[in-house]
């Protein structure tokens, strides 16, 4: 019985994966390249599609930068349990994992929208957040902040604080210690968190949709473009941009595996 059930189980997993994961992927690729390379390229390089892809890339890069700058200190606060209210910080950082991105986007509109107080004040100073690039970045940062923190906190705890103290006694300032002692040892955790952040930024839809208003050639990202194109029955365009997103995800998965393998030995040593 058990001799039979094991191959049967494995077979079921394969069938399930094929039907629900592999086939849709292949379908996207087939759809994108059905008209040949030239028509794929034509769809991807149309002004609207190119704009959307570039906007997604820009949001991802800015998000990575902000998350790194915010994520490292937040990780230390949580890992050290030293900052007053570190539990609250941890809870706030983890919130996006359970809150619907659409709700997060809506919350930003409520605060920064042109009819809200802060939004109106900012608009007065000619700073536009809702329905503009800054709001889209904010939404993406909100959704992706947990990733770097999640990867980094356990690594900081595993390394402990005696190496830091050793560095201080040897004359290194806190800043130099971060640079020479902490970052080199947190490098793999940070890279892993960044890869997850990038993957999520590329794919973010709900939060960005609400915040941006999805205005063509102004605030339309790649995922919004795909949605709009499919609603408008421009399937070739939808497939082509989807294929680009799919390939980027695939590349990021490869990066994650590579990071795991390269960093694995080091991480395990701690």
């Amino acid at each position: 019985m058990s001799r039979l059930s094991r191959p049967l189980g494995v077979a079921l997993v394969y069938v399930w994966l094929s039907v629900f994961v592999v086939v849709p992927w292949v379908a996207i690729l087939v759809g994108a390249f059905a008209g040949g390379w030239a028509s794929f390229w034509h769809s991807v390089s149309s002004p609207e599609a190119a704009f959307a892809l570039r906007m997604t890339l820009e949001i991802t890069l800015v998000t990575l930068f902000i998350n790194l700058a915010l994520g490292v200190p937040i990780s230390f606060w949580i890992a050290r349990r030293s900052a007053p209210g570190w539990r609250v910080i941890q809870w706030i950082v983890e919130l996006p994992l359970s809150v619907s991105p659409v709700v997060a986007g809506l919350a930003l509109i409520v605060v920064y929208g042109p009819n809200a107080l802060i939004g109106a004040l900012l608009a007065h100073a000619h700073i536009k957040i809702a329905f503009a690039f800054p709001g889209m970045v904010l939404a993406t940062v909100f959704v992706t902040l947990p990733f770097i923190v999640h990867e980094t906190v356990p690594a900081i705890r595993a390394i402990g604080d005696t190496q830091e103290q050793a560095a201080y006694v040897l004359g290194a300032s806190p800043w130099r210690t971060l640079w020479r002692v902490w970052l080199p040892q947190l490098k793999w955790s940070l890279l892993y968190g960044m890869a997850l952040t990038a993957a999520r930024s590329f794919g973010e839809f709900g939060a960005v949709l609400v915040v941006s208003g999805s205005i063509v050639m102004v605030t339309e990202t790649a995922t919004l473009f795909v949605y709009q194109a499919s609603v408008n029955n421009q399937m070739q365009a939808a497939y082509a941009v989807s294929a680009v997103l799919a390939l980027v995800s695939f590349a990021l998965i490869l990066v994650l595996q590579l990071v795991k393998r390269l960093g694995g030995n080091r991480l395990r040593d701690h």
């Binding site: 390394i159 190496q163 103290q165 560095a167 040593d269």
Partner: peptide, 9 residues
Amino acid sequence: FQNYALFQH
């Protein structure tokens, strides 16, 4: 230090 606290990297 008791556990040496050598820089592992």
